[in-house]
Design a protein around this nucleic acid. Structure first.
Lengths: 135, 135
DNA sequence: CAAAACTCTACTAAATCCATAGAGTTTATA
DNA sequence: TATAAACTCTATGGATTTAGTAGAGTTTTG
């Protein structure tokens, strides 16, 4: 299941893509409109800024704004930053690969193949869906 | 990400489908072969028994066995019992539907559609994969 | 009766998630 | 240049989930 963090983050991004005319939007404004606890939202936006989706302007009249056009931001990128790996097990993750401790071998692992199928189909969808599609 | 509970449960089911000739298999045997903590495995098998996948025989010579042919057990059923909803948000779940507290409406929710797409594609895969396919 | 094997309840340690507090820094603008 | 607006950063705490353990109880075979 999606964490609230991811859900809030997605909604904030959509809000920015929809409402902003390029100028910065204040946290308080997003928080009120989307009904997201402000302090929690702050930390989420900070994450999105540090990973290159958002820019910020400090001080009076400041706020957050999209750094890239919504048509070029894929859900796969966003998901990885907010929620983590798209795969359901680390041993089939493309971006967060980790070896399985409890598996003798990936070749013979009974669930490996199913996990790859799920990963691929989710990846297809997330790679082909852009932020602009959610507006 | 899959919980260990689900992963262990899947492996135990595959083990039973592969190794058993209909007769009961002891917990200790599954535990050793699949490298799963025995006490933890006990509780997982109990869940699988209570939800109708496994039968058990008590006493000496007892153990667990599949109640249904592996060719008729879908991964979707198993996933729901072990891990929970297949959907990523409760408001698009078919079997575990819950209303969203933080959404004004599902019709206008920006992520609703994407979540449905993901659900449907995962559902397709899980419904079409049978326990027998993992052997 | 004794040993094997499942059943059930309770508990704990660790991790993660959600959220809040508060001090600090930067900037616009009057 | 003072002030208020607004982002930045660190720390913290409660709630929930996850992984695993302990141990007493029950059933069955031989």
């Amino acid at each position: 299941m999606l964490s609230k963090r991811t859900k809030y983050g997605l909604k904030a991004l959509v809000f920015l893509a929809r409402e902003s005319k390029g100028g910065p939007v204040q946290i308080a404004s997003i928080s009120k409109s989307e009904d997201i606890p402000q302090k929690f939202l702050e930390s989420i936006l900070l994450t999105l800024r540090k990973s290159g989706f958002l820019g910020s302007k400090k001080g009076k009249g400041g706020g957050y704004y999209l750094l890239r056009p919504a048509k070029e931001v894929t859900m796969a990128e966003v998901y990885r930053v907010l929620e983590g790996p798209i795969a359901m097990v680390p041993c089939v993750s493309l971006n967060f690969y980790e070896i399985c401790e409890d598996c003798p071998s990936e070749k013979t692992c009974s669930i490996n193949n199913l996990m790859k199928e799920l990963r691929d189909s989710n990846l297809d969808i997330l790679n082909q869906t852009f932020l602009s599609d959610l507006i």
